[in-house]
Amino acid sequence: MIVRIMGEGQVILADGHLAELNKLDDELLAEMENGDGPGFRRTLQALLTRVRELGEPLPDDSLEPSELILPSPDATLEEVREFLSDDGLIPG
């Protein structure tokens, strides 16, 4: 799966990592629903860090269709709400 982190670029991520990332996504969603700004910021950073660690970056000049788009690390709670689907940021 090709994942884009807004403002950073794309990584290739094996589908086998989605379960781990969904746990962080669920935490993020709960923090957003509870208005926990510090928790939201911490979990968003953890999610993006994990995507970077597990994924392999595509070259900067490569532009592949992204199957998943994640917000930038400095995105606000309100901006992240715009990315959400019924499943959160990550489907499944």
Rank of each mutant, 00 (worst) to 15 (best):
L29F: 04
L89Q: 08
V3Y: 13
R50C: 02
R50P: 08
G37V: 13
N22G: 06
S85H: 00
S62V: 12
E82K: 03
I5T: 00
D25E: 02
T49Q: 15
L47T: 07
A19S: 14
I5K: 06
E33D: 12
E67P: 01
A30W: 01
G55M: 12
A19Y: 12
T49F: 13
L58E: 10
L44T: 06
L68E: 12
N22T: 10
L70V: 02
D26R: 15
D74Y: 09
D26G: 00
L63R: 14
A19P: 08
G39T: 02
L48Y: 12
D25P: 00
L84Q: 04
I2F: 05
V51M: 10
R4F: 06
R50S: 12
P91M: 01
L77P: 00
R41T: 09
L63P: 00
G39Y: 08
E56Q: 14
A75M: 09
D60C: 03
G9L: 04
L13W: 04
G7L: 03
E79K: 05
L54D: 06
L28N: 07
E20H: 05
L58N: 06
E78C: 02
R4N: 03
E31R: 15
D36Y: 14
L48Q: 09
A30Q: 11
D87W: 06
E27H: 09
G88D: 06
G7W: 08
L18S: 09
L13Q: 11
I5M: 03
A14E: 15
M32W: 06
G9P: 05
T43D: 07
K23W: 10
L48W: 10
P73N: 12
R52C: 09
D25R: 03
G92S: 01
M6S: 09
P57T: 02
L89H: 03
V51G: 12
G92P: 02
L48P: 04
I12A: 14
L44F: 01
L44D: 03
L28W: 06
M32C: 01
D87E: 09
I5H: 11
L13P: 05
R4C: 01
I90G: 03
L28R: 06
G7S: 07
D15L: 14
I12C: 01
G16Y: 15
P59K: 15
D87S: 08
